[in-house]
């Protein structure tokens, strides 16, 4: 019989399954190396920091969507939540004269409530999440325009700009924030039972219920995560321009979906990693950045991103991977040798 050490060893398939597991990371590194070698403007420190900074808030929003996709659902309402957070935050601070911190707390709470509503519609209302969140998306959008009459609200205090464009040494603050958020979420997903329940619910809802997982709580929590992280990202985007804008998130939903899938999250739920999402966001940003540097018309970005999403989803739907870590059957002879030791 094999010992515990042997049966608990990850990657018994060797480097091959390791590479397959971290495919997106290797592709990302390859992309960066290719652009660094071919584009002299790409490899400057300024440009690298620029890429990181621009990717940061989209990444945070994508990490929220990640949880919803992980449980096998979809959150379409994020584009309106971004607009809502942006316009109401600016309204609270500029029109009503609230302190920034209280306004932040208020809009984050609003986003959390929207997330809860989405979750309740899906869990208790048994609505397909695509429809439920499409509906909330439109309702919120309506309120956003009713509140702002479609006009931006500018005049946020200058100090708030730090949140979107500040630097700590040479590193932009948003980048630090992104890594802090990613680290916290990583600990949640990998090292807490709630985090692991997201995977369980996405993998098999009924089996999870029968194993005593609180599927109602976990499902609603995923939508709340999506709402709250979207709010944080939206505040950052607002801070860049110091103005509230209802249409801030209108083109972002597509990017966010692409990032989540690019990061190796299964669209049917149950599989994915938080750092995959971070790398997915950087991957997409590197491509847009390089296209800008090469002087390609920005509208081509939509075409290219569309093609990337198709390729990634095609790969996701047509490969049958072995679970989270692909363990391979060891060759009998070699296993025997190891057993002797």
């Amino acid at each position: 019989m094999n010992t515990f050490e042997e049966k608990a060893k990850r990657y018994s398939g060797g480097w091959k399954s390791f590479v397959r597991d971290w495919m997106i990371l290797f592709l990302f590194v390859a992309l960066v190396v290719i652009f660094s070698l071919t584009l002299s403007t790409f490899r400057t420190t300024d440009n690298i920091m620029n890429i990181l900074r621009q990717a940061a808030f989209t990444a945070i929003i994508a990490m929220g969507e990640f949880f919803v996709i992980l449980i096998g659902q979809m959150d379409m309402s994020i584009s309106s939540i971004i607009g809502m957070v942006s316009i109401f935050f600016a309204g609270f601070v500029v029109k009503m004269g609230m302190p920034v911190w209280i306004a932040i707390a208020l809009v984050v709470a609003m986003a959390a409530i929207i997330g809860t509503i989405n979750g309740i519609l899906v869990v208790y209302g048994k609505m397909p999440s695509f429809i439920a969140t499409l509906v909330t998306m439109n309702i919120i959008k309506g309120f956003n325009y009713l509140y702002s009459k479609g006009l931006p609200i500018s005049g946020l205090p200058d100090g708030f700009n730090f949140f979107g464009s500040g630097y700590v040494g040479v590193v932009p603050f948003p980048v630090i924030l992104m890594f802090i958020v990613a680290a916290i979420l990583f600990i949640i997903t990998a090292h807490t039972s709630v985090g692991r329940s997201f995977y369980a619910v996405g993998g098999n809802l009924e089996a999870s219920k029968l194993s005593g997982i609180n599927v109602v709580f976990v499902s609603i929590l995923a939508f709340v995560f999506s709402g709250v992280l979207t709010a944080i990202g939206a505040l950052g985007l607002t801070a860049k321009t110091l103005a509230g804008n209802v249409s801030l998130g209108e083109n972002l939903l597509f990017d966010v979906m692409t990032i989540v899938v690019l990061g190796g999250t299964s669209l049917t739920g149950g599989r994915g990693r938080i750092f995959g999402v971070v790398i997915g966001a950087l991957f997409l940003q590197v491509i847009s950045n390089a296209m800008v540097l090469m002087g390609i018309n920005t509208y081509w970005q939509w075409v290219v991103k569309g093609i990337i999403l198709i390729i990634v989803v095609l790969i996701d739907s047509n490969t049958k991977r072995d679970i989270v870590t692909a363990a391979r059957k060891p060759k009998p002879a070699r296993a025997g040798e190891k057993g002797e030791k």
Partner: peptide, 17 residues
């Protein structure tokens, strides 16, 4: 469909409850 989570590994399924 009800007893196991087919996307999970042995350890994860065993310790789930």
């Amino acid at each position: 469909t009800l007893g196991l989570n087919m996307k999970f590994d042995i350890k994860e399924n065993t310790v789930l409850p």
